[in-house]
């Protein structure tokens, strides 16, 4: 360390470089280990936020999806402050059931009534012809009882 460095450090003009090195390393290694580039991560972040928004109202500006690494284990950490739950959403089992209907009905199923956005009452009455549908799996019917 030179005298100039020392003065700068005392005046708070420059931080010690070791901590910078550590932070930069941790970030770059999290990306290296997961093989995700920043663009992919950003795309994933947007899609995760979209999905979460279907269920709860979240603060997009505060929402944060990052990679964190500890002990060679990289974790995807999503920090999404919830404003409030969406009241009109049917329970998860219902929507899975109607999603399964849409899949079983094949491509002929009209897309406008997307299963996720339907109110609870409509969820059981898909627009497709009931005869063409495959029998429901057991777990779906159990859910509807």
């Amino acid at each position: 360390m030179t005298v100039l460095d020392f003065i700068n450090r005392m005046l708070g003009l420059s931080a010690p470089s070791a901590s910078t090195a550590k932070q930069r390393l941790q970030l770059v290694l999290a990306h290296d280990r997961s093989d995700l580039n920043p663009e992919l991560l950003e795309q994933m972040r947007r899609e995760i936020l979209e999905v979460v928004q279907r269920y709860v109202e979240i603060d997009i500006a505060e929402g944060d999806v990052t990679l964190e690494t500890e002990d060679r284990v990289t974790a995807l950490v999503a920090n999404l402050p919830i404003k409030r739950a969406r009241p009109l959403q049917p329970p998860l089992g219902r929507r899975l059931a109607s999603a399964a209907d849409a899949v079983n009905a094949g491509t002929s199923s009209p897309t406008p009534n997307s299963p996720e956005l339907k109110p609870p009452g409509e969820a059981e009455a898909p627009a497709t012809d009931a005869d063409t549908r495959a029998p429901m799996p057991a777990w779906v019917s159990a859910n509807e009882d």
């Binding site: 010690p16 470089s17 070791a18 550590k22 002990d71 060679r72």
Partner: peptide, 18 residues
């Protein structure tokens, strides 16, 4: 340099590489 925090500390490296 380590004492001056101008070089990654030993623990930093072992923690990062585990």
């Amino acid at each position: 340099m380590m004492a001056n925090q101008e070089m990654l500390a030993v623990d930093d490296v072992t923690d990062i590489l585990a």
